[in-house]
């Protein structure tokens, strides 16, 4: 038993073997993604594997990816953030309203950041300092932030025709990478998304401050007695999540050129599904940014495949739930097998 456990590296926990090899879960996820990829390539060789399609899948999943990273971060400290979608909307609306009122871009961005961080701070303080369950705190925040966004806009699209062109362009900007005969256009959102995956992933494994998050999630009291500043880190986790939500808001607002109070409805569910599929646990102390990336990718490929294969659009919405249940089931079976 003991030796077996020692030999089963589970990279969702910081056992230090993360870079030695992928954990079995992530390996499985990679396999699933590859399998979906191959099946779609075989079934739709004309349309699916084109750079245009893959680029669209990858860059459009960036929004979900950033939100899912935010979710993973709070899951690691044994939290949950149901307000990600609403805060996204509120930050977007704030920035758009300011831009429409001819505020400069930095001012608008900072205001959006401020609003997002304020929401994150409120969540963090109520969870970390006051000690209220994250589920309830962020449920309340979800309602409040969306409500304020709706009140501010009365539901209208907020466009900002007078904003500097670069702001409205960069969300859709593509870097041209030569490939011999022509160019691959690589969207900025994709680059930002992937960069953040790599950077956060590295920081979580190699930066002591972020490594401490895992300890807080695994056992709050033990972490506290081990000299880890639990309250500070809990608040930091929600702030960090808010930061990622703000990234999403900036990209989305720029790409769509509108602020909108209904951005991100249901985003928390997709993010949660992706994070859990990727190895995060509601019991805290586990979570892996790369796993989350694979989870988001899987959902995105399934969504793309659905259309590619002319799936009945009615069934599209059931897919997230089924993915979640299947992932949890497979994981449970695997854990069960490991226990033997």
């Amino acid at each position: 038993m003991m030796t077996h456990a020692a030999n089963s590296p589970d990279a969702t926990k910081p056992t230090g073997r993360r870079f030695a090899a992928l954990s079995s879960r992530q390996f499985l996820l990679v396999l699933i993604n590859v399998a979906i990829f191959l099946v779609l390539t075989i079934l739709r060789p004309d349309a699916f594997p084109s750079w245009t399609n893959l680029k669209a899948v990858l860059s459009l999943m960036s929004y979900d990816l950033l939100i899912a990273i935010a979710m993973t971060i709070v899951l690691i400290v044994r939290g949950i953030d149901l307000s990600v979608g609403s805060v996204l909307a509120l930050a977007s609306v704030t920035m758009a309203l300011l831009l429409r009122a001819d505020a400069s871009v930095p001012v608008a961005l900072l205001a959006g950041l401020g609003v997002a961080l304020l929401c994150g701070l409120t969540n963090g303080l109520l969870v970390g300092v006051v000690g209220i369950l994250p589920f309830l705190v962020t449920l309340g925040m979800m309602s409040v932030a969306r409500g304020i966004a709706t009140v501010l806009t009365t539901g209208q699209y907020i466009s900002f025709p007078n904003a500097p062109a670069w702001f409205t362009l960069f969300g859709r900007y593509e870097l041209q990478i030569p490939n011999g005969s022509g160019f691959y256009g690589v969207p900025v959102t994709l680059i930002i998304g992937l960069t953040l995956v790599v950077v956060t992933s590295l920081l979580f494994s190699r930066w002591t401050a972020l490594r401490s998050f895992f300890f807080v999630g695994e056992s709050t009291e033990a972490a506290r007695l081990s000299g880890i500043k639990v309250t500070r880190l809990t608040v930091a986790a929600y702030l960090l999540a808010a930061l990622f939500v703000w990234f999403t808001a900036v990209l989305l607002t720029s790409a769509n050129k509108i602020g909108y109070a209904n951005y991100g409805i249901g985003a928390e569910m997709r993010a949660l599904a992706a994070a859990v599929v990727g190895g995060a646990s509601l019991a805290g102390g586990a979570g892996n940014i790369f796993g989350t990336f694979l989870g988001v990718l899987m959902l995105a490929l399934i969504g793309n495949g659905f259309v590619m294969l002319n799936g009945n659009p009615n069934w599209q919405q059931a897919s997230v739930g089924i993915v979640l249940l299947v992932a949890v089931g497979v994981d449970a079976l695997r854990t069960y097998r490991d226990r033997r």
Binding site: A273, N314, A318, G321, I322, L325, V328, D331
Partner: peptide
């Protein structure tokens, strides 16, 4: 009880799946 996963995850899965089924 079988998967020993937090009830929220399981019932969320049911929520999303069943909503999709209802629609379909």
């Amino acid at each position: 009880v079988l998967f020993r996963v937090h009830p929220m995850i399981i019932t969320m899965g049911t929520l999303l799946t069943l909503r999709g089924i209802n629609l379909a």
